[in-house]
Amino acid sequence: MTEAGGSSPLVKLEAVNKHFGTLHVLKDIDLSVARGEVVVVIGPSGGGKSTLCRVINRLEAIDSGGITFDGQALPAEGKALAQLRSEVGMVFQSFNLFSHKTILENVTLGPIKVRGIARQQAEQRGLELLERVGIASQAAKYPAQLSGGQQQRVAIARALAMDPKMILFDEPTSALDPEMVQEVLDVMVGLASDGMTMLVVTHEMGFARRAADRVVFMADGQIVEESEPEAFFTQPKSDRARDFLSKILTH
């Protein structure tokens, strides 16, 4: 990486704690993501994976610890927070496309309203991005008229339209019918090989093996293990990870 501050991590979490009522969902989490790195977070349900994803753009506030993005501490509120979020793309499990807007409007809204880009320019770029994820022919339709896989690809295009420094994926394929998972993963693999910084919470082990630089295994609110994908899947170090992998890889 050659950008300014290239050696410093893009995201750094230090001793992050988060509770939901009495439930301690993140326990002293330390994690950093380098520029251009693809980190896949896996682990059993309820282990805090989604919350980890959501604290990075502050959709959830943390109770203690610190998070820095691009060298700056996460702003708590207001314009500065909106500015930060515009630099961190997010793709949700349930797509969350704006239901009352067309596909093209979904992709151009952020650039026009947040970045102040002219409509014509935003639409041209929006169509290019829709082309890239293979949905350009559906630009005038509404989200409910598209399949789940198509909607999720639009959601990825919407995130890309902001030229984010990083994209967070919160179980992007979990709500999809099985035959649509691959089309979304293909787009994500494409992004990864183009050098996008990505944090991906997923159950897709094939994606982790193909695209991840690093696998983070989370259980019970803690990071139990971090390693390269091949090492993790073939020789997990912790009992917890071995146990988890034996349940999902045997059939």
């Binding site: 909106a82 500015q83 979020r85 997010m90 949700f92 969350n96 947040v114």
Partner: peptide, 27 residues
């Protein structure tokens, strides 16, 4: 209006008033 609509609006960097005006209130 599902919570996810507001979250998606915030996630692309819209301010509170923008997401109210452009996403939540129209729906």
């Amino acid at each position: 209006v599902p919570l996810g609509q507001a979250e998606a609006a915030r996630a692309i960097g819209l301010t509170f008033l923008q997401s109210l005006r452009l996403i939540i209130l129209p729906q």
